[in-house]
Simulated scan of single mutants.
Amino acid sequence: MTTPPDVRTEVVALLADVDMDHATHPREWMHRDGRALTRDELALIGTATEAELTAFAAAMAAARAAEDEQLDLVEELLALVEPYIATMPEGALLADVVPLLTPEQLLTYDRLFKALTRPEDPAPLACCSAGSCGAPAPGPVPVEIGAAP
């Protein structure tokens, strides 16, 4: 996503980090991690232009679309392994299903697993998602079958 020259990225990033859902007044807004906004941050938000608000809305729409796509991939992966899960003992890992998959299913599993563990297009404004900030991307995380998320 390219940013027009009249859009201050720090304003858009700050707007993306503000939890506005649980507050009725801007003085009650918080950062998504629960920290209160500073006076300077509130003042910066108050200077947001129409172009910056439009950029923020577009970034949030893109992030929602990326989340929806990830959810679709998870649902497809679950549908693929679901027939095998019943045969697994309690505490088995998703990787334990792999040897049971057909060659065609393995290709689908590989495509889905790669898309879920290393997205090619990280969600806008998401720092360190799949190494987008320069940090190494995280490796696969074992998923225990039957474990609560």
Rank of each mutant, 00 (worst) to 15 (best):
P26A: 01
V7K: 04
L44K: 03
E41A: 01
G91K: 05
V141Y: 15
T87A: 13
T49R: 13
A57I: 04
T38L: 05
Q105D: 00
E76T: 05
V143Y: 13
T117E: 14
E67G: 06
D17M: 05
R118M: 08
F56L: 03
A61I: 02
C133L: 08
E82C: 06
A48P: 05
M1L: 15
I85W: 10
A55I: 04
A23E: 02
P89T: 07
M60W: 08
D21T: 12
A115N: 10
P119F: 12
A58E: 15
L125Y: 06
I145K: 03
L37A: 01
V143A: 11
L42R: 11
D110A: 14
E75P: 00
H25S: 09
T108W: 03
E69L: 09
M88F: 10
S129R: 09
T24L: 08
E52W: 12
G46Q: 09
A95M: 09
A66F: 07
A123C: 13
D96Y: 09
A55H: 10
P26V: 02
A66M: 09
A51N: 11
A59L: 07
A147R: 15
G91E: 07
A66K: 02
T87G: 06
E28G: 12
P5Q: 12
Q70K: 01
E52L: 04
H31E: 01
P26H: 14
L101N: 06
A48H: 11
I45C: 01
T54G: 09
F56H: 12
A135F: 07
Q105P: 01
V81Q: 02
T87Q: 04
D19N: 09
P136L: 14
S129P: 00
E76D: 12
A135S: 08
T117C: 11
D68Y: 02
V18A: 00
H31K: 09
T24Q: 15
P122W: 10
L73Y: 11
P103T: 08
A95L: 07
D121F: 14
D110V: 08
D40E: 13
L112M: 06
A115Q: 12
A61Q: 10
